[in-house]
Amino acid sequence: MNEAALEIQSLTFHRNARTIFNNLSFTVEKGKFIALIGPNGTGKSTLLKCLAGINRIDSGDIKIFNRSLRQLKPLEIAKRITYMPQTTTLETNFTVQQVVEMGRYPHKKRFSRWMKTDQLAVKKALEQVGISHLKHRFVPSLSGGERQLVYLAKAIAQETDILLLDEPTSDLDIYYQVIVTDILHSLVQEGKTVIAAIHDINLATRICDQCIFLKDGKFVAYNAPSDALNTENIAKTFQVKSIIYQEPLTKKKQMMPVDVLT
């Protein structure tokens, strides 16, 4: 087994006296692409935010490459792990370039100058996501999909080992879905660890190394997609009756929802 990028030990998290996660433990291997699958309101975003240190967990421990999140300063966490939100609320007229440059913040000291390495990281991120032509546009004037790409570029410019992405493909047309999927794969190739919440079950299981089926803060399955994707898990996670079949050309498993279970 590879080195563990993330080690979660009996994570417990409450929000407004409601228990979201109770004693959740799991490990994520370095260099893997994990898809997080589950119904709305089941805690996917909350889990990602806990892992990124944005939500403060009530008990348990999260270790990033064997260092406990509790012992790391915010800036040290930000150098190791980044979270990309599903929706963004920016109304200020920052340009695309300016927002992507903010991804370099954790790497800068208070009065340190803008370095060649920062400039390169920003340029590379813009090119990798394919939005160099947008770099002088104001972010609020972009479409939802383009904005998602800007935040993805910012996350890439942050140069962390672990990327947590909340529905990175939800607002994208199929052209950019393919582009983003390729980007995520190349990030994994570089040795980065990616955890992405993805709504589209067929897309998610097609592109990931391992998938997590999450229901009410508990794991229904955490497996390779070929093993995890079955009617039983779909039923348990989504209360939906489904058919699983092999797509004849790619030989990959596909899921088709048929009916709701009552």
């Binding site: 240190g53 800036l75 979270y83 300016q98």
Partner: peptide, 23 residues
């Protein structure tokens, strides 16, 4: 003025600021 970068980032929202390591 010493907080100029943090002020930029705070405009992206609280979660983004935390994500980038701002206290």
């Amino acid at each position: 003025f010493s907080y100029r970068k943090q002020l930029d980032i705070l405009l992206l929202g609280e979660e983004e600021a935390k994500n980038l390591g701002i206290h």
